[in-house]
Design a protein around this nucleic acid. Structure first.
Length: 266
DNA sequence: AAACTTTACAACCGCCCCCTC
DNA sequence: GGAGGGGGCGGTTGTAAAGTT
């Protein structure tokens, strides 16, 4: 079902992902977010191209990805939206929480398109919706626009805060705004459960000798603890230090990993 | 049981858009 | 305004699994 793994002339792995690769990518993104897909595999210790990492995360590893069969309700919604929007899989997927565009696209090609071709009645629910679709045409157009507008993951206020935070880093090692802004909410959602063992998983990384310990990073917002809106990891005097900020006071606090998270305020 | 066909879906590829410089 | 880089999207491919003959 998956493409067999291979290595191209540049030493980049292709094809199916191993459990080890999945774990590396998952742990890395849960700790640091996807700040730059192209650079990410290098720091995560993966011999993959950035695009491949992104795809794997988005379609498979993301904690909120729902797996399993599509419900009748989901099928109906896909069919209805495909009728309205065409092959706009990414927009359709936003109406189906936990479903990826790729999954929906595959499901369409393997199941739903045939069903539609056969002109098989889908369900009374969809028929009713279709009957009322004429009257809601303007609503559909509105929806399209709002969805397009919502494609940008960072809200203006978020971008503003992020930019402000970048300007106020306690370290001279800075990261560009574009890199920062690429940490999307996608990487944030549904990860709180992982945050709890944040420190214990750090030990694993230290053992693996991974090179991303030499770099400063932002942490995903889902690691917020005690109301911190952003976290920042840097190397300071030979030690890894966490800085946190909340949007209200725009001040960076130093966190002490030795004590309970969030209690090491400056 | 073996050979062949179909299905399902993970993954790749190329293009396009947006942002930054 | 244009070039370059990065990310997102949709089309397509490859192949294991399931089904059929």
């Amino acid at each position: 079902m998956v493409k067999s793994a291979s290595i191209d002339k540049n030493g980049i792995r292709k094809g199916s992902w191993s459990i080890e690769e999945d774990e590396k990518l998952r742990v890395y993104i849960q700790k640091y977010g996807h700040w730059n897909w192209r650079q990410l595999p290098k720091f995560a210790g993966l011999s993959r191209c950035g695009k491949s990492c992104r795809l794997r995360w988005m379609n498979y590893l993301r904690p909120d990805v729902k797996r399993g069969n599509f419900s009748e309700e989901e099928d109906n919604l896909i069919i209805q939206m495909h009728e309205e929007l065409g092959n706009r899989w990414s927009i359709i997927s936003r109406k189906l929480p936990g479903r990826t565009d790729n999954e929906i696209k595959n499901h369409w090609h393997t199941n739903l398109s045939k069903r539609v071709k056969q002109n098989q009645p889908v369900s009374s629910e969809v028929m009713n919706k279709e009957q009322s679709s004429e009257s809601s045409q303007s609503e559909v157009i509105q929806t399209k626009k709002s969805e397009t507008d919502s494609v940008s993951v960072n809200t203006p206020s978020e971008s503003f805060h992020q930019q402000k935070n970048v300007e106020n880093f306690p370290s001279s090692q800075e990261i560009s705004c574009s890199e920062f802004s690429s940490m999307t909410n996608d990487s944030v959602s549904g990860m709180n459960s992982v945050a709890e063992d944040s420190y214990s998983s750090m030990e694993i990384f230290q053992d693996s000798g991974s090179d991303f310990w030499n770099q400063p990073f932002f942490l995903d917002n889902n690691y917020n603890q005690d109301g911190y809106e952003s976290l920042f990891l840097t190397e300071e005097l030979g030690y890894m230090s966490f800085y946190a900020s909340n949007y209200d006071d725009d001040i960076w606090y130093k966190l002490d990993p030795a004590s309970d998270a969030g209690t090491g305020r400056q």
